[in-house]
């Protein structure tokens, strides 16, 4: 088993497992992904509802989608945790709002690509994930709290401002501060 606190190793192993699922429908590799991400996705689903059975169902839907869509994963979608987070989030939107989540399509002829990234982009990405992980641990608690409320409880800025008794402008500026800090950490490639 991988040590979850070693992010770089975790990212690399999880990408290998996902690659094995995509290319050879490797059930053993998928089981390892499931043992790691299943309980996390279940916890994420439970943040929005006290209904344990529902959280279980949404987790299972998410993991089946991971199996089905494994071939669509590519490193430019972020690390495996980020990719699975987006699938889980879309399951939540689908269930709670009965609606789709509009997303851009990199294969669309109207899509505007970025400048070509350096050849070691995949290596950079492991580095970036690791740097992001460490940067998030240095966020002040009140900034981290805002991110958790947004990502886990889908609280709107006005809900957050009521909940924390803060003016709306403060909520927004705190969010911008948090990401400015993360961005500085990512740009600081020493």
């Amino acid at each position: 088993a991988v040590d979850p606190s070693d992010k770089k190793a975790l990212n690399i192993v999880m990408r290998q497992k996902l690659f094995a699922v995509a290319t050879s429908r490797d059930v053993a590799a998928f089981e390892e992904l499931f043992r790691y991400y299943g309980p996390r996705v279940r916890a994420y689903m439970a943040k929005l509802s006290r209904d344990g059975q529902l959280a279980e169902e949404l987790m299972q839907e998410t993991m089946v989608a991971v199996w089905n869509k494994a071939a669509q994963y590519s490193p430019d979608k972020g690390n495996v945790s980020t990719w699975i987070f987006t699938i889980a989030r879309n399951q939540r939107i689908d269930h709670w709002r009965k609606t789709n989540r509009p997303d851009f399509d990199p294969n669309d002829p109207a899509f505007v690509p970025a400048e070509i990234r350096p050849a070691d982009a995949a290596f950079d990405m492991n580095e970036d994930a690791d740097r992001l992980h460490r940067a998030m641990q240095t966020l002040p608690p009140e900034q981290l709290e805002l991110l958790k409320l947004s990502f886990f409880e889908e609280a709107s800025h006005s809900t957050i401002s009521e909940k924390l008794g803060l003016p709306l402008g403060t909520v927004k500026s705190r969010i911008r501060l948090a990401f400015a800090k993360l961005r500085t950490a990512l740009e600081d490639r020493s």
């Binding site: 992010k7 991400y37 439970a46 998030m136 886990f152």
Partner: peptide, 14 residues
């Protein structure tokens, strides 16, 4: 979105 993935990674597993 990476921050979302990071939070999923560090959530207390159920």
């Amino acid at each position: 979105e990476g921050a979302g993935g990071e939070l999923l990674d560090t959530i207390e597993p159920a």
